[in-house]
Amino acid sequence: MTSNYKKIFTGDSLVARQIVSQLHGLGIEAIIKDEAESARLSGFASSMLGQVDLFVNKDEVAKATPVVNKITQK
């Protein structure tokens, strides 16, 4: 199965939410994948608390990457 999404960030959930906010301002929809929250909701434990993956459509990676770089290099 192929995906139309590409991971552009892995890290702290607060940073990811800041990136998503900036991306939305540019008209880019982003998806946050939080394995720890998914595990918690399923009744399991996770050692990756606070770590999330952020995905955007493959067509928007070039436009989204500078936003990620700007925010993560502060």
Results as ranks from 00 to 15, higher is better:
residue 57 N to F: 12
residue 65 T to P: 00
residue 25 G to A: 11
residue 20 V to C: 09
residue 30 A to N: 05
residue 64 A to H: 06
residue 22 Q to W: 04
residue 14 L to Q: 08
residue 33 K to F: 14
residue 60 E to W: 02
residue 71 I to Q: 07
residue 45 A to E: 03
residue 4 N to H: 11
residue 63 K to G: 04
residue 44 F to Y: 10
residue 65 T to D: 09
residue 33 K to I: 10
residue 61 V to N: 06
residue 35 E to I: 07
residue 51 Q to K: 13
residue 24 H to R: 15
residue 20 V to M: 12
residue 74 K to W: 04
residue 41 L to F: 02
residue 70 K to Y: 08
residue 58 K to H: 11
residue 61 V to R: 06
residue 57 N to Q: 13
residue 49 L to K: 13
residue 50 G to W: 10
residue 20 V to Y: 05
residue 26 L to R: 14
residue 54 L to G: 09
residue 32 I to T: 10
residue 55 F to D: 01
residue 49 L to H: 03
residue 59 D to E: 15
residue 64 A to F: 01
residue 14 L to S: 02
residue 58 K to D: 11
residue 26 L to S: 05
residue 36 A to N: 08
residue 14 L to G: 09
residue 69 N to I: 13
residue 69 N to P: 00
residue 38 S to G: 15
residue 40 R to D: 03
residue 13 S to L: 09
residue 4 N to K: 12
residue 71 I to V: 14
residue 72 T to L: 09
residue 22 Q to G: 00
residue 44 F to W: 03
residue 5 Y to F: 12
residue 28 I to L: 08
residue 38 S to C: 06
residue 12 D to P: 09
residue 35 E to P: 00
residue 65 T to W: 13
residue 69 N to A: 13
residue 13 S to Q: 14
residue 39 A to S: 08
residue 21 S to E: 14
residue 32 I to Q: 08
residue 64 A to Q: 05
residue 44 F to E: 02
residue 9 F to T: 05
residue 7 K to P: 00
residue 2 T to D: 13
residue 71 I to M: 05
residue 37 E to H: 07
residue 32 I to N: 07
residue 53 D to W: 01
residue 22 Q to H: 13
residue 73 Q to A: 14
residue 19 I to P: 02
residue 15 V to D: 02
residue 22 Q to E: 15
residue 74 K to P: 06
residue 37 E to R: 13
residue 43 G to Q: 04
residue 19 I to S: 03
residue 56 V to C: 07
residue 30 A to P: 07
residue 7 K to W: 01
residue 16 A to W: 05
residue 46 S to M: 00
residue 68 V to P: 01
residue 17 R to Q: 14
residue 48 M to N: 11
residue 43 G to L: 02
residue 53 D to M: 07
residue 62 A to W: 03
residue 22 Q to P: 01
residue 52 V to R: 03
residue 9 F to V: 05
residue 23 L to P: 03
residue 63 K to Y: 04
residue 53 D to E: 15
residue 31 I to G: 00
residue 34 D to P: 03
residue 37 E to C: 01
residue 68 V to L: 04
residue 15 V to L: 15
residue 65 T to A: 11
residue 47 S to F: 00
residue 47 S to I: 03
residue 38 S to A: 12
residue 13 S to F: 08
residue 22 Q to A: 15
residue 73 Q to L: 10
residue 61 V to I: 12
residue 51 Q to D: 11
residue 69 N to K: 15
residue 32 I to W: 06
residue 61 V to L: 07
residue 51 Q to P: 00
residue 30 A to R: 07
residue 41 L to P: 01
residue 23 L to E: 05
residue 7 K to L: 11
residue 70 K to H: 12
residue 62 A to R: 13
residue 29 E to W: 02
residue 54 L to I: 09
residue 66 P to S: 05
residue 72 T to A: 05
residue 50 G to S: 04
residue 13 S to Y: 09
residue 67 V to C: 06
residue 51 Q to M: 13
residue 6 K to F: 00
residue 6 K to W: 00
residue 28 I to C: 08
residue 27 G to C: 06
residue 43 G to E: 03
residue 66 P to K: 09
residue 8 I to Q: 02
residue 40 R to F: 09
residue 48 M to T: 09
residue 16 A to V: 05
residue 39 A to D: 12
residue 12 D to N: 15
